[in-house]
């Protein structure tokens, strides 16, 4: 059975112990005596409020916790004259540090991701060619000349092969261990 809608506010005031007007209270009690719906709803509401109050009751502070809190307040005011107070600094410092860490990590991650995903594909890299140092440029410039020199050298070697069939510059097994002057000489 439902409570009477027109008594909702009175019912709420009653369960919150705010029904202070004696006339209103008397009328309400008269109604309650005859209305099961309002009576039941009042009991339900009272029970619900007990549960809500129990849920919102803070757990007891231990002595140490209470002392710590009181100590923080006392410390602030012990040194108060001329002191710029640090309102809740301990709490504010934590998010500030956390924000700084997040910022650093984000920047580092940003660089890393940029290198991983876009390192080879950056527009600037594709547009530019590797620059050579001047000495390297010199080598490239004379590359053809060097190749010609190589060919000439091979030609000379073929033309200059002596009758003994040895290529100049290669050691002669017969003259091994002798001085160029022809004297036999045992190499120590």
């Amino acid at each position: 059975m439902q409570a009477c809608r027109n008594h909702n506010e009175t019912l709420m005031l009653d369960v919150l112990d705010e029904l202070t007007d004696p006339r209103v209270r008397r009328d309400w009690e008269g109604h309650l005596a005859s209305c099961t719906g309002c009576r039941t709803e009042k009991e339900r509401m009272l029970h619900l409020l007990v549960q809500v109050r129990a849920s919102g009751s803070p757990p007891e502070l231990s002595d140490a916790e209470a002392r710590r809190m009181a100590g923080a307040v006392s410390r602030e005011f012990r040194n108060r004259p001329g002191r710029v107070s640090g309102s809740g600094w301990s709490f504010r410092l934590v998010p500030a540090l956390a924000a700084a860490c997040v910022l650093v990590i984000t920047v580092m991650a940003g660089y890393w991701l940029q290198d991983s995903f876009f390192g080879a594909g950056r527009v600037g890299d594709l547009a530019s060619e590797p620059q050579l140092e001047p000495p390297d440029l010199d080598v490239v410039k004379h590359l053809d000349l060097l190749r010609d020199m190589d060919t000439i050298e091979k030609l000379i070697q073929i033309v200059d092969i002596p009758d003994n069939g040895l290529v100049p510059g290669e050691p002669n097994p017969e003259t091994q261990g002798t001085q160029p002057d022809g004297n036999s000489h045992v190499v120590a």
Binding site: P58, M69, A72
Partner: peptide, 26 residues
């Protein structure tokens, strides 16, 4: 003050202690 803080901070004891401390300082 701790009770008020507890009910304001979503029934979290340690947060309520911090909040109560700030409130007491205020």
């Amino acid at each position: 003050v701790y009770g008020i803080a507890y009910q304001f901070c979503g029934f979290d004891k340690s947060e309520a202690q911090d909040m109560a401390q700030e409130a007491l300082l205020q």
